[in-house]
Amino acid sequence: MKLRLVPALALALCLAACSTGTGASSAVNADANADANANADGSPKELRIGYQLIPNGDLIVKDQRWLENELPGTKVTWIKFDSGGDVNTAMVAGSIEIGLAGSSPVTRGLSAPLNIPYQVPWIFDVIGENEALVAREATSVDGLKGKKIATPFASTAHYSLLAALQRAGLAESDVTVVDLEPPDIQAAWTRGDIDAAYVWTPVLGELRKTGKTLVTSKELAAEGKLTADLAVVRTPFATSYPETLRTWLRQQDRAVKLVRSDKQAAAAAVGRQLNLAPDEAAAQLDELILLDGKEQAGPDYLGTPDAPGKLAENLRDAAAFLKAQNKLPSVPELTVFQKGLATKDLRDAFSG
């Protein structure tokens, strides 16, 4: 959920990790006193979750208070973020334990110079038609030359925008890309300050009412530029509280199965969180691909401890693309991304 080396994000991360200049240092320091956060039964006293307003199972878990019910001794705190870049910043600062970030920010987080000590235990959704490039007047991507396009920097939408421009034969310098979070994109669109935007629902739905969709992330995925919304968990937290993480994973699986078994109830829950009518929430749910725990352990996704899935290859491919766009200084080895998949935690959550 990606422009000129993302200076604002880089500055924020630098400030958050000022002790050594790396993201890993601050996050590890934040977890150094993990025992102080433990209850007598070994569960954490508090679990801070970074969520986004994306119509997937995470909002169902939040709405239904399943974690609060399953972890009665733990204070569950939900903190809203507008983009994955902000989630990365929070992870570096040590202010959340679990968060939602798109595959592009996770690629950056696992790569140098950030090297955030986190792993991916769950895929919230594979992005489809719920993320797209919408224009006010242009009827094709190449028609955006010289125009102003908004997107949240360091997000999957930013990554997809760069891919869409390249696909249309445009260089980044052929357009003006501005960094705006989704709520600001909607305001800028209403004022007429931007010509186009690459963003996700629910803001995308508002832009589509008066704009034209030029390309969707589903189309780009079919050409090898797949994007997804991923869960990230700080590695020291996962090590200290494995049963809590397994409980979290089981609730996410429960939400996906609710979507499949009772779409009306799932849409009502998502609608409450997004302030949307259930039918509109249901339509937005349909634009995403949701996977249950068994599917996530398959070879096309997270895989298993003995056989990491293709998600690792996808993240490395994204790193190579971002390196070519001068957004990363180097491309990590595939093993970096394979180690970044929490396949053991996923397996343990559903074994036995």
Rank of each mutant, 00 (worst) to 15 (best):
Q338Y: 06
C14D: 14
A40H: 13
G271R: 03
T190K: 13
N37W: 04
I127V: 15
W200V: 15
A318N: 13
E129S: 15
A27T: 08
T139S: 14
A297H: 05
K263W: 08
E223A: 14
K310A: 15
R136M: 06
G50T: 01
A168Y: 07
L207N: 11
K323L: 10
S103C: 04
D345Y: 10
D184Y: 07
S217A: 15
D345N: 14
T74E: 06
V177M: 09
L341C: 03
V134I: 10
V106W: 06
S173C: 03
G146W: 01
D174A: 12
P278G: 04
A269Q: 01
C14V: 10
F81D: 00
D86M: 09
P72H: 11
G94Q: 00
A168G: 12
S111T: 13
G146F: 02
S160F: 02
D279N: 13
P332E: 02
S83T: 13
D31N: 12
A319I: 00
S261E: 11
C18W: 10
I96K: 00
A282G: 13
R254I: 08
C18H: 13
S83Y: 05
S103Y: 02
G23Q: 05
L180E: 02
I116K: 00
N33R: 09
R254G: 13
S26D: 03
Q325A: 15
L341Y: 04
G50W: 03
V336T: 15
P72G: 10
V76S: 12
A297N: 06
L59N: 00
A10D: 12
V203D: 09
I96V: 08
L133E: 07
A10H: 10
T244R: 04
T247G: 07
K80A: 13
A282S: 15
A307R: 12
G298R: 05
V28A: 11
K257Y: 10
K148N: 08
E223L: 13
Y301A: 01
Q273T: 08
G303T: 03
V134G: 01
G293S: 09
S173E: 14
E68S: 11
A196V: 06
T213Y: 05
E137R: 09
L9T: 00
V76P: 09
E137I: 12
L230G: 02
I98D: 01
D184R: 10
A154P: 01
A238T: 11
V336I: 15
A307C: 05
G23V: 04
E46L: 04
E280Q: 13
A154Y: 03
K218T: 09
K145D: 06
